[in-house]
Design a protein around this nucleic acid. Structure first.
Length: 497
RNA sequence: GGCGCGAUAGCAAAGCGGUUAUGCUCUGGAUUGCAAAUCCAGCUAGUCCGGUUCGACUCCGGAUCGCGCCUCCA
């Protein structure tokens, strides 16, 4: 999504194609289990996917081909491969690709065809000429969805559909082919073998493989029990926070999904939205009018360097600093905001109402908080600072942070929940130092590889201080963290006496 | 075993053969009735062992650790 947005912003004519595999063993099995048509099942999941994408602000591709819509092209391709000796129809109605016939096989992933045999774990199939051969067309089992073909009723093989779809949608050669880190072998290797053998020309100019999303440092998988959906995440975090996390690292780097990283992503966004408050009427500037801007040059340079979104963000932070310094120069500030929003548009962030983003609360809460703010303003006018502070503290404990601006207005924002108390209730320590009581809470959240700790200092049950989140590396021991937190707590008490 | 990727400060994450990455956190200052936000300044780096070089986090070699792929999932 970000790559497409950026390329288009630089006047590239982009044809963005993303295919859907809507027929395979898993789909057939699940549809049979559910007692429904496989098309009903795939439609439901495709609809879900589109809903999730919409929430994340992901633009739809220009074409979203489905495998079952390209059966004819796929059969043509198989025919071409058979004619050229790169494929053969087996006795049972399957069609296989003859791997040894393609001399470049393995060029993408640096595989040696001879060594592949040694590593083959599958049982030797009597039907294939060679265990390395892969299926292009699979004969249908009784009752399964199938299509007619020169080799009898069947359905597409597992790799050919991508070659067939891309040929129709992108042509014999196209520029960029993306995919996940698990795809280069065998899938993309097989696509190359199919398309280059059938079409007689180069398949793809640039391969882009993304880094894996990891959970607690491991691959997400059902067997590991660390599997969850984007919907689960969006229940807890604003979609923009998720996007921000993703653009915070290079697309090729693995990215670790951890609560701490989401919290940090939110903190970064708060800095941007804090600066954007009050500029709702400023629209993103067009890149065409920004050619001379140093921020624009930095942004484009970063993005032109293999879509280095992290470096692009660094430049945007520079802009934010300059924007915060330019609050007394409305014209300049407005221009900077326009630029910042323009960059945000490419990354798919910063287009929301800052106040809404920062307050992140229900309408009832907004009213409740505003009433207290009004009461506090009155107290301040009457120089009743005790009451004013009481209200501030009351709200602070509930995660509402007040900011008095110079003009006298008070704005507020919702503080992140720094610590999920329920975890680690058996890992709390109540200690005493110089007459102050302080409590340490440790957390080791389910999806975090990091221990976190925070401390709260009390005097006669009154909360005096609540620490910020202290994050610890995975190598730190529990004992070390405990000592470190104690030092911080005692340090605070020493200073406050 | 084969192929490939990685190891950077308290945390996250980039570039770069010599010169500030950046963000979060933390510390000091300015500001504030007190705060917050903001600004200014600062503290923490480059897994280990060799080599190349005037100079290496950056290049080369090795070790260690971590991760991915090697499946008729696509």
């Amino acid at each position: 999504d970000v790559i497409t947005r950026f390329l288009r912003s630089q006047s590239w004519d982009v044809n963005y194609v993303r295919n859907i595999t809507d027929i395979d063993d898993k789909i057939i099995n699940r549809a049979n289990e559910n007692g429904e048509e496989y098309t009903t099942l795939t439609k439901r999941f495709i609809d879900y996917m589109h809903e999730d994408e919409t929430r994340l602000g992901i633009a739809r591709p220009d074409i979203e081909p489905r495998a079952t819509g390209f059966i004819d092209g796929l059969i043509d391709m198989n025919n071409a491969l058979i004619e050229k000796g790169h494929a053969y129809a087996a006795s049972n109605g399957d069609v296989y690709y003859r791997v040894t016939s393609f001399k470049d096989y393995g060029k993408l992933t640096n595989k040696n065809v001879d060594e592949l045999l040694a590593g083959a774990r599958i049982e030797v199939d009597e039907i294939k000429e060679d265990p390395r051969d892969f299926v292009l067309w699979k004969a249908a089992k009784e009752g399964d969805p199938s299509w007619q073909s020169p080799w009898g009723n069947g359905r597409p093989g597992w790799h050919i559909e991508c070659s067939a779809m891309s040929k129709k949608c992108c042509g014999d050669t196209f520029d960029i082919h993306g995919g996940g880190p698990d795809l280069p072998f065998p899938h993309h290797e097989n696509e190359i073998a199919q398309s280059e053998a059938a079409n007689g020309c180069k398949y793809v100019n640039y391969w882009m493989h993304a880094g894996a999303v990891r959970v607690d440092g491991e691959k997400m998988s059902k067997s590991l029990g660390n599997f969850f959906t984007i919907r689960d995440v969006l229940e807890k975090y604003h979609p923009e926070v998720v996007r921000f996390l993703l653009v915070s690292s290079h697309y090729r780097s693995p990215i670790n999904y951890a609560e701490d990283n989401l919290i940090e992503a939110r903190a970064g966004l708060e800095r941007f939205y804090g600066a954007l408050r009050g500029y709702n009427d400023v629209a993103p500037l067009a890149f065409s009018g920004m050619q001379e801007s140093a921020y624009y040059k930095a942004f484009v340079e970063a993005m032109n360097d293999d879509f280095n979104t992290r470096v692009a963000l660094a430049g945007m932070y520079d802009l934010v600093r300059d924007l915060n310094n330019a609050k007394n120069e409305p014209e300049l500030a407005s221009n900077l905001v326009g630029q910042l929003k323009a960059f945000g548009l490419i990354l798919g962030i910063l287009q929301a109402d800052p106040i809404k983003f920062l307050q992140d609360g229900s309408d009832e809460e907004v009213k409740e908080v505003q009433d207290l703010i009004d009461e506090r303003a009155q107290a301040k006018l009457e120089k009743n600072y005790a009451r004013a502070d009481e209200i501030r503290k009351f709200l602070a404990v509930r995660g509402v942070e007040l900011e008095d601006s110079k003009s006298g207005d008070t704005v507020w924002r919702k503080e992140q929940v720094l610590v999920d108390i329920p975890y680690g209730s058996d890992e709390r320590f109540n200690e005493e130092y110089k007459g102050y009581k302080w409590r340490t809470t440790f957390t080791n959240t389910v999806s975090s590889i990091y221990l976190s700790s925070c401390f709260e200092v009390f005097k006669d049950k009154e909360l005096l201080h609540s620490s910020k989140l202290i994050k610890m590396g995975e190598k730190d021991t529990f004992e070390e963290i405990h000592i470190r937190t104690r030092v911080l707590a005692q340090d605070w008490i020493d200073k406050s006496i």
